[in-house]
Simulated scan of single mutants.
Amino acid sequence: MAQHIGEIMTPDPVTATPRASIAEISRMMREGDIGEVLIVENGKVRGMVTDRDLVVRAVADALDPETTVAQDVCSADLATCPPDAEIDEAVQLMRDNAIRRLPVIEGDRLVGTVSIGDLAIERDRSSALADISAASPNR
């Protein structure tokens, strides 16, 4: 069983700039079958746009997806963890911050991302969340 986040994280997460349109971000999510795109500027993580951010901060307010940009809807105050963090530390961070995804940062550099589904698959493969997280996407 893995002990550290670096062992279960998704390396090389999908990124975009703060000026990327949310239409572009949405296409990236669809094409990558992912629920988040990390916003990076000058090599530093500036935020994260999740599928929920798109719905709650853009669609619900009828924002134009071609002219609304990532920085307008992203979550900017992110909890992060290093790749050598123990899995239990990441679980606690997610609990404490009521979040489902954590960027993995080494020094100043984005090296991966880990989701609550990744943790479920690692810790309890027979759980409903692990089954859902491991299932093929609906297309």
Rank of each mutant, 00 (worst) to 15 (best):
D118A: 04
A70M: 03
G107Y: 07
V55R: 15
R19M: 13
E41M: 04
D61A: 08
R101G: 09
G43R: 01
D131L: 09
D124L: 04
L119E: 06
C74T: 01
L93I: 13
P18M: 04
I39G: 02
E31I: 05
E31G: 15
P13S: 10
S21L: 03
E24A: 12
L54M: 12
Q71M: 12
P137I: 12
I121F: 06
D33W: 09
E89V: 08
M48A: 10
D108T: 15
D131Y: 11
K44C: 07
I5W: 02
A20N: 12
G117W: 01
E106K: 14
V56E: 05
V45N: 01
E86W: 08
A120L: 01
D12L: 11
D84M: 07
M48E: 08
R100L: 05
A20L: 11
N97I: 10
V40M: 00
A128Y: 15
T67A: 06
S133V: 13
A70T: 05
P103Q: 11
V114A: 14
T17R: 05
D108Y: 14
A98H: 15
T17H: 06
A90K: 01
R125C: 02
A98Y: 11
D64V: 01
R30K: 13
R109C: 12
D118T: 05
P11V: 14
M94S: 06
E122W: 00
E89N: 06
R95E: 10
D131G: 11
P82H: 11
S75I: 02
D96K: 09
S126E: 14
G6K: 07
I121W: 10
V40I: 06
V56T: 07
E122L: 01
I25L: 03
G117R: 03
S75T: 13
D51Q: 10
M48L: 13
A23N: 15
V73D: 00
V49Q: 03
A58E: 04
A62F: 10
P137S: 15
A135T: 10
R19E: 13
V69S: 00
H4C: 05
R19H: 15
